[in-house]
């Protein structure tokens, strides 16, 4: 199992992801440069958080046409695993690999905070080992994280079990009160129809290192590592 973290100009969570996977999970991981066409034989591609291309035009809008993304799209279309976190999620929606869009937070501000999310299913790779009744404390840090999709899409996401995470209370209640950015249905993360591409706004890589006092994100990486290695 080999992980690849794509580095766009303006990515700033790439090293955090590399640390979480290499130090936290003891897995092989390499960085993939945006100008390259080589995925270096990686099985699992991660698109990190940050402000790729300065968020010029629109978050993720320019990153999706970078050279490496042509390969990432091909990798995904042939069934390979791809996951985007924060800006990575935005890029995947812009690239059409994930349904919906991420709009400006409802309070019109950047929000950095510890929030709780609960898995909406355990049928997706990153939530396989998670407890459906548990809230996981995972930090968010974004200005454009309000998940939006049309009614038909939302219905398909629901019917096909593609909703990965919802914002919740610390007791896993998914009330509107705990909806940090105004996302439809409290959606914090989704998958594609084939369930090999995933996106989430919260940063699980920020909740892996025990020295930071929060390891709730480990279960997500463990789910990925365990299944793929099995």
């Amino acid at each position: 199992m080999k992980f690849g973290v794509v580095v766009f100009p303006g990515s700033n969570c790439d090293q955090d992801l590399v640390d979480a996977i290499s130090i936290g999970m003891q897995q092989e991981v390499v960085k993939l440069w945006h100008k390259s066409h080589d995925l270096q034989g990686c099985d699992f591609i991660l698109l990190p958080g940050g402000f790729s291309y300065g968020d010029y035009l629109r978050s993720g809008a320019i990153a999706r046409i970078s050279p490496i993304m042509q390969e990432v799209v091909q990798h995904a279309n042939s069934g390979g695993y791809v996951m985007g976190i924060c800006n990575g999620f935005q890029i995947l929606t812009e690239a059409g690999l994930l349904p919906g869009a991420l709009l400006r937070n409802v309070n019109q501000k950047f929000i950095c905070d510890n929030v709780y999310i609960k898995p909406a299913t355990t049928n997706l790779l990153p939530t396989r080992l998670l407890d459906l009744n548990k809230a996981y404390k995972i930090p968010v840090a974004h200005g454009e994280g309000r998940y939006h999709a049309d009614t038909d899409t939302l219905k398909r996401l629901h019917d096909n079990d593609q909703i990965m995470f919802k914002y919740s209370s610390n007791a896993a209640e998914t009330h509107e009160l705990y909806n940090v950015n105004g996302s439809l249905l409290n959606i914090a993360g989704v998958s594609n129809e084939k369930k090999n591409v995933f996106g989430m706004m919260p940063h699980p890589e920020r909740a892996v290192d025990p020295e930071l006092g929060n390891t709730d994100g480990r279960a997500i990486f463990e789910s990925i590592v365990e299944l793929v290695n099995a």
């Binding site: 955090d16 929000i111 950095c112 840090a141 890589e205 920020r206 020295e211 006092g213």
Partner: peptide, 28 residues
């Protein structure tokens, strides 16, 4: 104010989950 600042990027901030009188940041 501080919710508008990313205080956790870098995964080195030790004073987020256990607040302290000064900020504590790991030297990786």
């Amino acid at each position: 104010v501080y919710r508008q600042y990313d205080s956790m990027v870098g995964t080195a901030t030790m004073s987020t989950n256990a607040p302290a009188d000064a900020a504590v940041v790991k030297v990786k």
